[in-house]
């Protein structure tokens, strides 16, 4: 049974149909690539899944519950986390605190516990501290834990965004162009990292990416959008040979 199931989703902005009758099913643990030329509606799909937009029609089911139009915070707590195409870190907070914020939604100690410094609060704080540092270690950021997020180099900021999303313990991770602005070496490392965290934590990954090497290298299924409509779904090798995909990217003969 798919963990994330978009059924006949259409998203209109006035006269513009950004996403047209989309059907997308992601199995648990799957690496699913979503590609398409600029303006194909990839980020709109992300925003529909994470509750930023309510779809004009169609249903979004996560773990057999309809989540279309729920608040983003609630959807994250259900188990869908995302990164942003244009990095959105908490710039003035430290790297460590960026990750700690994402742990908040799985914490139970409330404000009163913090003000009176109860035992539950301090034990929970030290657990969050430990788990955050473990995550930073996985993403090779532990040397920068005390640094302000805005002072990090670009590639590290991208990795921190993924680390922060992982801290919400998602079952589906949405990555919006994680390799954007990375050089060849960095994107190869990122590819390995994405595959590794999928194997280690077992969540499904939905990847939007322009870098074909990354998409074709790690995705098990590739979904191609053009002008909001699906033009092909299949294995990377099939997609690369699909004449419709080639036409969408390179233009008709």
């Amino acid at each position: 049974m798919p963990i994330l199931d978009l059924c006949n989703v259409t998203m209109r902005f006035g006269g513009l149909v950004a996403v047209n009758d989309l059907n997308l099913k992601i199995e648990p643990g799957q690496l699913y690539g979503l590609i398409g030329p600029n303006g194909a509606g990839k980020t709109t799909v992300f925003n529909v899944i994470t509750g930023v937009y309510t779809p004009t029609s169609g249903s979004v089911r996560f773990d057999d519950a309809d989540i279309a139009g729920e608040r983003s915070g609630l959807i994250t707590r259900r188990g869908i986390a995302r990164t942003f195409q244009n990095i959105r870190l908490f710039g003035d907070m430290t790297v460590l605190d960026n990750v700690k914020v994402a742990f908040h939604c799985r914490q139970s100690a409330d404000l009163a516990a913090a003000v009176f410094r109860t035992g539950t609060h301090s034990s929970e704080e030290s657990r969050v501290e430990r788990e955050s540092r473990e995550l930073l270690h996985i993403f090779n950021l532990d040397g920068m834990a005390g640094e302000k997020a805005r002072n990090l180099p670009y590639g590290s900021q991208r990795r921190l965004e993924i680390a922060r999303a992982m801290a919400t313990s998602p079952r589906v991770l949405l990555l919006d162009e994680p390799a954007a602005g990375m050089n060849h070496h960095e994107s190869v490392q990122l590819m390995e990292l994405i595959r590794w965290i999928r194997d280690r934590f077992g969540m499904a990954v939905l990847l939007v990416e322009h870098n074909m090497k990354v998409v074709m290298g790690i995705c098990e299924t590739v979904h191609v959008l053009d002008y909001g409509s699906t033009i092909a779904i299949g294995k990377p090798a099939e997609i690369q040979a699909n004449p419709k995909v080639i036409e969408a990217y390179l233009g008709g003969a």
């Binding site: 608040r71 994250t76 707590r77 942003f84 959105r88 908490f90 003035d92 939604c105 799985r106 919400t168």
Partner: peptide, 11 residues
């Protein structure tokens, strides 16, 4: 710092 990102992190 960033309200949209905070909401996306489950806050």
């Amino acid at each position: 710092e960033d309200e949209i990102a905070a909401e996306a992190m489950g806050v």
